[in-house]
Amino acid sequence: MPLWAEITVTVFLVIAGVFGLVGSYGLVRLPDPMTRLHAPTKATTLGVGGVLIASMIYFFAAEGRISAHELLIAIFLFLTSPITALFIAKVHLHLREKPENLPTPREAAGWASYTASGPARGVRDFPPQDEPASPVADTSH
């Protein structure tokens, strides 16, 4: 394997390890759920991206073949991580926060997460400060 490939793979592996560790440490360290959402969804995705780039360069330099699997995994992760972050934020907003405690948005329409689906479909009755009693038994919708 040529020297430039070794250096590049090493740099990307070290960057990926540092970013993955920072993301997981932020998950433990940050104080409340909405800030906790910030750390892993960005930093860990960067970490996996670094590992994937290192893997592409390694297999290209060692065996001379260009593998597209890493690109597939990277595209899939970059597409799905905002969706999972949005869903987790919605779980937190709808189960733990009240709409009047949130900051008022600039538009007059209010928070789309609460108003879009209407109270009959998406939003539970507030305030469920404890765990909801039994989500299965709620067959009103």
Binding site: G23, P33, R36, P40, T44, I88, V91, H92, L95
Partner: peptide
């Protein structure tokens, strides 16, 4: 909270 646990499992 449950959202923390889901986030940690995803990570």
């Amino acid at each position: 909270q449950k959202s923390d646990r889901i986030l940690a499992l995803d990570t």
